[in-house]
Amino acid sequence: MLELRGVSVGYGRTTVVHDVDLVVSPGASVAVMGHNGAGKTTLLRAAVGLLPVKHGTILLDGVDVTKTRPNQRVRRGLGYVPQGQLCFPQLTTMENLQLVADRRPSGRRLIDDVLDTFPALRGLLSRRAGLLSGGQRQQLAIARTLLTEPRMLILDEPTEGIQPNVVADIEAVISGLTARGDLSVLLVEQHVGFALRVTDRYYVLESGRVTSSGDGGPDAVGDVRAAMAV
Rank of each mutant, 00 (worst) to 15 (best):
R127N: 07
L51Q: 10
T92Y: 03
A47E: 08
G217Y: 04
V48A: 03
A31P: 01
P119M: 07
P150V: 01
V65R: 08
Q163H: 10
Q163D: 11
A226K: 15
P150H: 04
V17P: 05
V221C: 02
T92K: 03
A101T: 00
L146T: 05
L44R: 07
S106H: 13
Q83S: 13
N96M: 09
S212I: 11
N96Y: 06
I154D: 09
S175I: 15
A129H: 02
L155W: 04
L124R: 11
V53Y: 12
L44T: 10
L132N: 00
L78C: 08
L205Q: 11
Q72P: 04
V198Q: 12
T199F: 03
S175T: 15
A143D: 01
E149F: 05
L51T: 03
V24G: 10
L132Q: 06
A31Q: 04
A120W: 14
A141I: 09
Q85M: 09
D169E: 15
R137I: 06
V166A: 13
T145I: 02
S207V: 12
M33H: 06
K54C: 14
L147G: 06
Y203D: 07
G77A: 13
V114N: 04
L91P: 02
A120G: 12
L99R: 13
E157S: 08
P82I: 02
N96C: 11
A195S: 06
V20G: 01
I162C: 13
E3D: 11
D113L: 12
A129S: 08
A46V: 05
T159N: 12
L183Y: 04
F118L: 05
A47M: 14
A46Q: 01
D156M: 07
Q90E: 15
A38H: 02
V65L: 09
E157A: 09
T92P: 00
A229Y: 01
